[in-house]
Design a protein around this nucleic acid. Structure first.
Length: 555
RNA sequence: GCGCCUGUGGCCCAACGGAUAGGGCAGCAGCCUCCGAAGCUGCUGGUGCAGGUUCAAUUCCUGCCAGGCGCACCA
């Protein structure tokens, strides 16, 4: 039985206790709100716990302990007659009036059995979801190499997709390609000017153009290809194509693969933007003022109305974006998740407003703001500006700290929280980086399994009931918590908890390793322990894989 | 001025509104004739300030202080 199922049954039981078991007045019951169950942080308090008695205390005007005792009596009567009987070994009251449930060893053995065979398929098959998810992330403009901020978005987005897939969703990873519009025009101009410069002309390079050396490099490529007289238009297309190649390569080296690249240019050609605006107009959310078309987003909680078509007839960013998101729904996705940088946060409300205006549910779109990863060198902030060409690229970070450390590091803070990344520190502390702690556990286990020379088939058949020592049980419990970690990531739409979980699991393993020998003479105990560490290894490998980090057999 | 994020030991960070606020680094003291010491064990030390809601606040609300980021008919 999965943790989620066990929790579900317990929840039902508590609901029943509320409704009939405790003989409570309706007025009190309706005032008590879920969640009823929580996972205690202290393990002596059991594996799952309810504070229902505390919640009831005031309304009932009795001591929480008294209520807890009544509840306990009810549960002790019901549990032996329910499907929970084999999985809950003990219930007790602790603290101010918590009722704690202790799972049976059999429960943990059964979970280990699953981890031994194929944890991945097990989870996926048990929790098939019907929603089709479109997760859009990175979507950096093809006007320069990827920055560190994009790196964080890529790491978070990819891991989140992995988590959602494992949770049973059908997920598509999409990159919105801004291959049209003002910034692209500036890119074209920038390259063109540099080309003229290389050809010996005196030029004036405007401040709002892209200053980076890569622009000069692109111009030089054109020069070497005898394209000295290339038009601005040609420079533009060439620049977008080449920079996109660089971005794809970088993402690929970073371990992130997109299923779909959605071109803004093709969107503009399709006529979908005009259709979207027409539809909004038809619904009465568009008006004209000062020569521009405005979308009345204030009807949906925005602070002010937004221009959608400028007075010169061109679109603001909002216009194609509305059409783009409408198209996401039309393509059959029913849950949209966008990862955006913090500079877009003010933009969420107006996009949601537009989708509401088009008749969509507001829950159908989740925008996650990925806070900046501030790069430091020896404690000093490196200021970055794409325009000025002053920045450290994702590529440079990758080269300096390595793929595994970079991917893991980007996930180590809550996504909506700032992340400081000191390059010097990251380099110096490579040995102490938590990723190595986790990988080391994996490699250590691999080494023991190899030394044991016990065939996998024999390990699968091991008698798990021989696992009784405290450290063994603790490791079993840590393994069993993987499912909850996944669930938290799914609910919070944030994969960062994977990194904390993996560190916890690795710690439990290292402790187990130090107190008990795996390769003992007693073959039964040996095989049971081999099964335990194999299960642990599988979960570590799965967790690392979800995070985009490798799980080495040797280090 | 408005919005978002963040204030937790010397430093970096955890804690669905719950029980004795956890871990890492640095410091000190220990553990390899034994499956990998990139590991383990022990010690020292903390919720920015002031209110409020609650049986219970690091968590939620209000105000203040401090830091970061963003506020276009740019994308």
């Amino acid at each position: 039985m999965l943790f989620a199922q066990l929790e579900g049954y317990l929840n039902q039981l508590l609901q029943k206790a509320l409704a009939e078991g405790l003989n409570l007045p309706e007025s009190i019951v309706s005032g008590i709100k879920p969640p009823f169950l929580e996972i205690p942080k202290e393990e002596s308090f059991g594996d799952i716990s309810t504070s229902l008695a505390l919640k009831l205390a005031q309304a009932l005007k009795t001591s929480p302990k008294e209520t807890a005792e009544k509840l306990l009596a009810y549960l002790d009567q019901e549990i032996p007659n329910s499907c929970l009987k084999d999985f809950i070994e003990k219930t007790d009251i602790a603290g101010a009036g918590f009722v704690n449930f202790h799972f049976s060893k059999e429960y943990f053995y059964s979970l280990l059995k699953q981890a031994l065979i194929n944890a991945k398929d097990y989870f996926a098959s048990k929790s098939k979801k019907t929603k089709k998810v479109l997760l859009e992330f990175v979507s950096a403009n093809p006007t320069g190499p990827l920055s560190v901020a994009h790196g964080r978005q890529a790491a978070v987005g990819d891991a989140l997709c992995n988590v959602l897939v494992l949770s049973g969703y059908e997920v598509t990873r999409e990159y919105y390609l801004n291959d049209a519009g003002n910034q692209i025009n500036i890119l074209g101009n920038s390259i063109h000017l540099r080309l003229e410069e290389l050809s010996g002309e005196r030029i004036e390079f405007p401040d709002d153009h892209y200053q980076g050396d890569y622009i000069i490099a692109l111009a030089r490529e054109l020069l070497e290809a005898q394209q000295t007289t290339a038009s601005v238009e040609y420079c533009k297309e060439y620049g977008v194509r080449r920079i996109l190649e660089i971005i794809r390569k970088e993402l690929n080296d970073f371990g992130v693969k997109f299923d779909s690249w959605y071109s803004q240019k093709s969107l503009e050609k399709s006529g979908k933007i005009e259709k979207a605006i027409a539809l909004l107009k038809e619904k009465g959310f568009i008006y004209e003022q000062e020569g521009a078309l405005w979308f009345s987003s204030t009807k949906f909680q925005d602070d002010k109305d937004r221009v959608i078509v400028k007075s010169d007839g061109s679109y603001t960013y909002l216009a194609p974006d509305i059409a783009y998101h409408q198209d996401k729904f039309k393509r059959g996705f029913d849950w949209l998740i966008n990862l955006w940088g913090p500079d877009h946060h003010g933009y969420i409300l107006r996009l949601k407003a537009a989708l509401l205006a088009l008749g969509k549910e507001k829950e159908a779109l989740n925008v996650i703001i990925v806070q900046l990863a501030t790069l430091l060198r020896a404690g000093k902030v490196i200021s970055m500006s794409t325009r000025k060409g002053e920045y450290i690229t994702l590529r440079q970070v990758l080269d300096e700290v390595g793929l595994d450390a970079a991917r893991f590091f980007f996930l180590m803070r809550r996504t909506d929280s700032h992340l400081d990344f000191d390059l010097e520190l990251a380099k110096q502390q490579t040995q102490e980086n938590p990723v190595y702690y986790v990988q080391y556990a994996h490699a250590r286990i691999a080494s023991i399994l190899k030394n044991s020379k016990v065939p996998p088939s024999q390990i699968q058949e091991a008698d798990l009931s021989l696992l009784k020592e405290k450290e063994e049980i603790n490791l079993l419990k840590a393994i069993s918590k993987f499912e909850n970690c996944l669930r938290v990531a799914e609910i919070q739409l944030d994969p960062y908890c994977l990194t904390t979980y993996l560190q916890e699991l690795a710690e439990r393993f290292h402790r187990f390793y130090d107190s008990l020998r795996v390769l003992v003479e007693d073959g039964g105990v040996r095989d049971a322990r081999l099964a335990l560490i194999l299960g642990c290894k599988n979960i570590i490998a799965l967790g690392l894989k979800l995070s985009g980090v490798s799980a080495p057999e040797k280090m």
